[in-house]
């Protein structure tokens, strides 16, 4: 899961200097690696790829601002049984 999420983020980075690296803990929004529209794109990706449902109360950038946060979120949703709550 981590590799898939990281690959998805990497393919959407707004940086073109090949020397720039980002870690799984980096806040990709604050560092300007992605734009805010990516937040909406990410929701669609996580739902489709991992079969979870992102509820209204989950729509907080703090759940998604780093690869590690995304992984934790998906794991939590899976433990909850796809997140249940509808949007």
């Amino acid at each position: 899961m981590r590799e898939k999420i990281r690959a998805m983020v990497e393919s959407n980075l707004n940086i073109f200097n090949s020397g720039v690296q980002f870690s799984d803990d980096d806040n990709i929004f604050r560092k300007g690696f992605v734009d805010s529209l990516f937040a909406v794109q990410l929701i669609a990706y996580l739902e489709a790829e991992f079969g979870i449902k992102v509820a209204n109360k989950d729509l907080d950038i703090n759940n998604f601002h780093s690869v590690n946060k995304m992984v934790s979120f998906v794991e939590r949703k899976r433990q909850e049984g796809t997140g249940g709550a509808s949007r």
Partner: peptide, 11 residues
């Protein structure tokens, strides 16, 4: 969510 208006709602 409060504070997420541009990121999620507007987008």
């Amino acid at each position: 969510q409060a504070g997420q208006g541009f990121t999620y709602v507007a987008n």
